[in-house]
Computed example of a mutant assay.
Amino acid sequence: MDIHLTDISHIIQLSIAPVFLLTGVGTKLAVLTNRLARIIDRSRVLEDRLSNGAGGSFADAQSELLTLYRRAHLINRAITLSTCCGLLVCVVIAALFIGDALKLALAKFIALCFVLGMFSLIGSFVYLLREIFVATQSLSRRFLPSASK
């Protein structure tokens, strides 16, 4: 079985669109990990403050810590789903290349992986949105006490 340069060029063209998706997923992962890092940094400050018994209300610090733990949990789920999406997109790219190069019928497998990747991406966005709602809700409770009533 001979693979010609035009065949390889066609295979690469098929793989380009998922590569752009992969770039977007990578950028989203960077945003998610930055959000998680900020949550972890703030949690460490509060945990140190609680263990030292320094400044502020114990109840307020505990309440904020619980909110931060919830946010971290949501972001972790978003990261997991985004990573799954990235892996599935990589599988799609590899399957496109292998299927076309070796003349294998992988269309259903490729479609399944792509759809699963899209569901993972959608789920990741849902968890990110939930985390943003929790973060903004905690802000309004802290700075606008009348808003929580």
Rank of each mutant, 00 (worst) to 15 (best):
H4P: 00
R77M: 13
L106V: 05
S146M: 00
Q137E: 14
R49V: 02
D2M: 06
C113T: 12
A147I: 05
I98K: 10
S148G: 05
G55E: 14
G86D: 06
G26N: 13
V91K: 01
L22G: 06
V19A: 15
Y69H: 14
R35H: 10
A95F: 11
L144M: 08
T67N: 03
L144F: 13
V126G: 00
L29V: 01
R42Y: 08
T80F: 03
A59N: 13
G86C: 04
E64C: 06
A17F: 11
F125I: 12
A37P: 00
L74Y: 09
I75Q: 08
V91I: 12
L121W: 10
D60A: 14
S138V: 01
L74V: 07
T23K: 00
I79A: 02
R142V: 04
A78M: 08
K28E: 08
E131S: 13
A105T: 08
R38V: 06
G53H: 08
F58P: 13
I3H: 02
E131F: 02
V25G: 04
L46R: 02
L144C: 07
L129Q: 08
L112M: 08
L14W: 00
D2H: 07
L81Y: 07
L104C: 06
M118P: 00
L14P: 00
L139S: 08
V92Y: 01
S82M: 09
D60P: 02
F97L: 14
L116E: 02
V89Q: 00
L14R: 05
I132S: 07
G53I: 10
T23F: 11
R141S: 04
A94K: 00
F58M: 15
A147N: 08
H10L: 09
L88W: 00
H4V: 03
D7C: 03
A95D: 13
N76Q: 13
Q62E: 15
L116I: 13
C85K: 01
G123T: 01
A135S: 15
D41M: 04
S124N: 05
A147V: 06
K103T: 11
E64P: 01
S57N: 13
K108C: 04
T83R: 03
L68C: 03
L104V: 07
M118A: 13
G117E: 04
I8S: 03
F119N: 05
I93A: 12
L66E: 14
A95Y: 09
R38E: 06
H10R: 11
Q62N: 14
I122V: 15
K149H: 03
A95K: 07
T83I: 01
R44I: 14
P145C: 04
A17I: 15
I12A: 15
Y69E: 12
H73Y: 12
L81S: 03
L66Y: 09
A105N: 10
I8Q: 05
G53T: 09
S57L: 11
S146T: 05
S43E: 14
L128V: 07
T83M: 01
N76L: 01
F114E: 07
A61S: 15
A111Q: 12
V31D: 04
C84Q: 09
I12E: 12
L116G: 03
V45H: 07
K103C: 05
F97M: 15
E64I: 12
L66R: 15
F143N: 10
L96Y: 03
L22R: 01
R35E: 10
P145R: 08
G55T: 10
Q62F: 09
A95H: 09
L32C: 02
F58R: 15
P18I: 07
V31E: 04
